[in-house]
Amino acid sequence: MRTLMAYAAGLLFGLGLAISGMTDPARVLSFLDIADEWDPTLAFVLGGAVITTFIGYRLVLRRSSPFFGDKFQLPTKRELDSRLLGGAALFGIGWGLSGYCPGPAIASVVGLSTPLVAMLVAMIGGWWLAKRFSGSR
């Protein structure tokens, strides 16, 4: 049941990205380009995600355990370090250059294009490098 719920959540997330237009890199790049024809759509999508997460966490964490698991798996690390900041910077640079972040990129695979392939190769390469140099194998 856990696997089924994970797939359902992924499908819901992907549908949300597609319906909101966030799988279109031109829309994302228009949001990041505040000097030209700025498109505020992404701000509303992000705002909706923040509000949903804010409310959702408060409701879910009232429970003693999740519906489909033994315990909640929440991050415990609170400090900022160079790995976190470097990863965030690389994510932002890649997002700004390509218009894709991992969720929309994977949701866009059906319309494969050369820029999307380049982004996916870079993303997989980044995962591999992070795993190789993080010491966790």
Rank of each mutant, 00 (worst) to 15 (best):
A35W: 14
D70G: 07
I34C: 12
L46Q: 12
V45G: 03
I19Y: 15
R58W: 10
S64Y: 00
T3Q: 13
T23A: 10
G14H: 07
A35D: 14
V28Q: 00
S30N: 14
R27D: 01
D33P: 12
S65Y: 02
V50Y: 05
L29Y: 01
K71I: 01
A6S: 12
P40H: 11
F31G: 03
A9K: 09
R58M: 10
S65K: 09
E37Q: 15
A49G: 08
R2T: 09
P66G: 00
R27E: 05
F72Y: 03
F68I: 01
F68N: 02
S65N: 02
Y7G: 09
Y57H: 07
F67R: 11
P75I: 00
G21Q: 07
G10K: 03
G56Y: 01
M5I: 11
G47K: 10
G48L: 05
L32P: 03
D70N: 08
A49H: 08
D39S: 12
R63A: 07
I19F: 15
S30M: 09
A6C: 12
A8G: 08
R62A: 07
P75C: 04
R27K: 13
I55S: 01
F67Y: 09
R62I: 00
A6L: 14
F68A: 07
L29N: 08
D33W: 13
V45S: 10
A43E: 11
G21R: 04
L74E: 03
F13H: 06
Y7M: 13
V50D: 04
A43Q: 12
V45Y: 11
L29S: 09
F72D: 03
R27N: 02
D39V: 10
R2V: 04
P66F: 00
L12S: 09
S64E: 04
L74C: 01
G14I: 04
F67P: 02
M22Q: 04
F54G: 06
F67A: 10
K71T: 03
D36F: 13
F68W: 07
L15G: 13
Y7T: 09
L42F: 15
T52Q: 09
L11D: 05
F72L: 01
Q73K: 03
A43S: 15
G16V: 05
A49C: 12
K71H: 06
L61M: 02
L59M: 08
D36Q: 15
L17T: 05
W38N: 11
P25Y: 02
R27S: 05
P40R: 13
M5T: 09
G48W: 03
I19P: 08
D70T: 07
V50S: 03
L15P: 05
G69E: 05
L61C: 01
R62P: 00
M22D: 03
P66Y: 01
V45F: 15
G56L: 04
